[in-house]
Simulated scan of single mutants.
Amino acid sequence: MESGLVVVYVTAPRGKGAEIARRLLEERLAACINIAEVNSMYWWQGRIEEDKEDLLVIKTTVSRLEELIRRVKEIHPYTVPEVVALPVIACLGDYCRWAREETNPQRNA
């Protein structure tokens, strides 16, 4: 059962997540975005860093994924933003249909 959806994780500086989310939603690149505050630890330029970040959990379609990734790279303040997409192998049929409808680029026309 293929849903045609993906969940994309994007981290951003604390307080920037809502700005990024709103732009992606306005451009119909996502149907829904959850934002959670997280404490992140990661390697960067040879050191372990620790930051408070916003975690965006983005629901979109496979067909909109490439454009979403391109757009995140354009508007994100990080040099190398985290953009990790995971396939949705199943979801509630009504939710899948809703997400596909909301990410239809013709919806704004």
Results as ranks from 00 to 15, higher is better:
39 N>H: 14
78 Y>V: 08
34 N>T: 10
45 Q>P: 05
29 L>G: 08
28 R>I: 01
81 P>E: 13
85 A>V: 05
44 W>T: 06
83 V>E: 09
89 I>C: 04
38 V>F: 02
95 Y>A: 11
5 L>P: 00
49 E>F: 11
28 R>C: 06
26 E>Q: 09
22 R>C: 08
68 L>S: 05
8 V>I: 12
98 W>R: 12
59 K>F: 00
26 E>H: 08
62 V>N: 11
37 E>I: 00
1 M>C: 09
109 A>W: 15
3 S>R: 09
88 V>E: 11
96 C>M: 15
105 P>N: 11
72 V>R: 07
37 E>T: 01
19 E>D: 08
62 V>P: 04
44 W>G: 07
28 R>V: 01
88 V>G: 07
67 E>Y: 02
43 W>E: 12
39 N>E: 14
43 W>C: 05
47 R>C: 04
100 R>K: 15
21 A>P: 05
90 A>N: 14
91 C>E: 11
23 R>T: 11
23 R>A: 08
36 A>L: 10
30 A>T: 04
55 L>V: 04
74 E>A: 15
34 N>R: 13
50 E>A: 13
14 R>S: 02
40 S>V: 06
52 K>R: 15
28 R>K: 13
96 C>F: 00
63 S>H: 12
14 R>C: 06
107 R>M: 12
67 E>V: 14
87 P>K: 12
58 I>C: 04
39 N>V: 02
72 V>N: 10
44 W>M: 10
92 L>Y: 12
25 L>M: 07
98 W>M: 14
79 T>D: 15
75 I>F: 10
35 I>S: 08
102 E>S: 12
87 P>G: 06
3 S>L: 06
24 L>I: 02
50 E>V: 03
73 K>G: 06
40 S>D: 04
89 I>S: 12
90 A>R: 12
67 E>A: 15
